[in-house]
Write a protein that binds this DNA or RNA. Structure first.
Lengths: 325, 325
DNA sequence: ACCATTGTCGCAAACGTTTGCGGCAAATTT
DNA sequence: AAATTTGCCGCAAACGTTTGCGACAATGGT
């Protein structure tokens, strides 16, 4: 069976297509009785407008694109969930694409977005993205692009980020206040801007006041091995830059049968899900993907409303006490 | 700036629109030289076909819908990720909608799918879905619907599921083989088919051979409280029907400072992510969202290829030893 | 020299909407 | 009674494609 069209409704009712169209949109030109007849038949026939035809006619697609390296990630999860929620509420659909951190796939995904004539794009670039041009092309076409989390290192773009420096500073401050003496600090890949930001703010706050062991890990396994190896130096605290690192570190701590916070303290920067899996819950500085999603969305709506002002926004972070320090 | 169209290319080259269209699709009617000129100009002009116009003309949208209660969920994550991967590989896009377990939103999402004239739908129904009619309407429109995970309790639909009975049986068997004597078994909401399936298979396999404490929990907090309360009865093993329940149970075990598996054994049915967070890693029966996604996709492609045969498929489960039992 | 074939290309309709404009009858004002 | 306004509706073009069909020239075969 085929979908009902305006034409079908119009022929059944002996009206013109335009009258039916206007009746369904409650246009003042149409008589009340006619509107009633039309809407009635439309519902019994289960009429649903063809979004493609509408976009073709109006060149308004009401679809947002969202490109991201991986969907399966604690942080992106909540971000996506948040954006999806807002989109639906504002009558937009979401097209979600993942690149798998492959620049070639990333390009393909952008093509797909363009082919679907998206109204706007939320983008988190892959680790090795050098080709920002494909994104800039969208801007040429007057399609707003909101970069989030991992943003390109060039100016003149809209960016929303979690407060990297502030978060790291907050964690470092908490460590100092607790009078810790020797901290094992594990950071991520140093190629990422996010890592460098957090690292510099963290070390700057610690400021050589206490002993600092700094390491970099690319994934949970590396973080676990690293923690295990460093435990011989008897740090009294472990700081983890991210959730993934935290899972690795905790694995090592459990393996070594150390008590938290008795034997060793733990503090992390996190989205909030992982820290609550342990007992005692891990104290963490929250960088909420959910909040970031909301921020990105309002930023997008501002662009669509005509704001050409480029902005860089950050969400506020808060310290969530869990009892691990 | 506007997007390039076939018409623009055609006027620049002094050709007709149809010739340009055919040239870009490598139609045999068109001379090689012409094809070259066209493709060349198309790339310099960054031509991207308008997907909406194509859908309108061909009534083929190449977009799949995917509706799910929540995106932020261990299991759905990997499922979505898997489907997205396959979709892209086969030149389809994915429209992902979440219902928040709200039947009203669920209906709205289905409307959205219909408006976008999706080629097929992957659906996981919300907990209280009673209105399967909206889904059946899609079938009337010859749009294939593949239900996954939480499937409706009616026949004549395509369903792909993890092997609920087999998984529960496998876990129960493992418990029996380890000569355990007293098992605390925590299941989810009994309204869900998935719960009832797992529960009946589990109890059937245990078959009163050993002591069984059965409880139901709707979320992690309930699971934690429940475990904490039941510990006084000294079970030697905890079985968790799902990841969410596992996180609650583990919280209680850590809180009680019990050693795994020395003081108490743990076994679960899981997607695999959560069990690996602990040390020792939790032994679990794997129900892979990734595999289920692949299965769902092949099922979808079969439908699109014309298969009208309704099927119920299940993925195989495997026991992953972790050292917690 | 003629006819048939082959190689290239354009015409025009169609997909389902939206919307400016104009038409016509009834109602209202002069 | 004539002129104007108002209420209601239809015509037709346009959005960007695809595709059956026909047109025309060049080529080949007799």
């Amino acid at each position: 069976m085929n979908n009902t069209t305006l034409k079908e409704i119009s022929t059944v009712l002996g009206l013109s297509i335009s009258t039916v169209s206007r009746a369904l949109k409650n246009h003042p030109d149409i008589a009340e009785k006619t509107k009633q007849r039309v809407t009635e038949l439309a519902t019994t026939l289960d009429y649903e407008p063809n979004a493609n035809a509408i976009q073709l006619r109006t060149s308004k697609s009401n679809v947002f694109g969202l490109v991201v390296p991986f969907i399966s990630n604690f942080f992106y999860h909540s971000f996506i969930s948040s954006v999806e929620e807002e989109s639906r509420r504002n009558n937009y659909s979401l097209m979600i694409l993942q690149s798998g951190d492959d620049p070639f796939v990333e390009i393909t995904n952008l093509k797909l977005c363009r082919q679907n004539r998206i109204s706007g794009l939320f983008a988190c670039i892959s680790t090795q993205t050098t080709h920002v041009e494909a994104y800039l092309k969208l801007k040429e076409l007057d399609i707003p692009v909101i970069f989030f989390d991992k943003v390109p290192d060039v100016g003149n773009c809209n960016k929303v980020c979690v407060a990297d420096e502030a978060s790291a500073t907050m964690a470092a401050t908490a460590i100092l206040e607790k009078k810790k003496k020797k901290v094992l600090a594990i950071f991520g890949n140093n190629n990422l801007l996010i890592t460098r930001k957090r690292l510099s703010a963290f070390t700057k706050t610690i400021d050589n006041k206490i002993n600092l062991l700094i390491h970099h890990a690319n994934n949970a396994e590396e973080a676990e091995a690293l923690t295990l190896a460093s435990l011989s130096q008897n740090p009294d605290t472990v700081f983890c830059m991210s959730d993934e690192i935290l899972t690795g570190a905790m694995k090592a701590i459990q393996k070594s049968a150390l008590k938290v916070p008795g034997d060793i303290s733990v503090i992390a920067i996190s989205n909030g899900f992982i820290p609550k899996l342990y007992y005692p819950e891990i104290t963490y500085v929250e960088t909420s993907g959910y909040k970031l999603g909301k921020l990105a969305f309002t930023s997008m709506m501002a662009c669509l409303a005509g704001s050409t002002f480029m902005h860089e926004l950050t969400t506020e972070s808060i310290l969530v006490e869990g009892g691990s320090i």
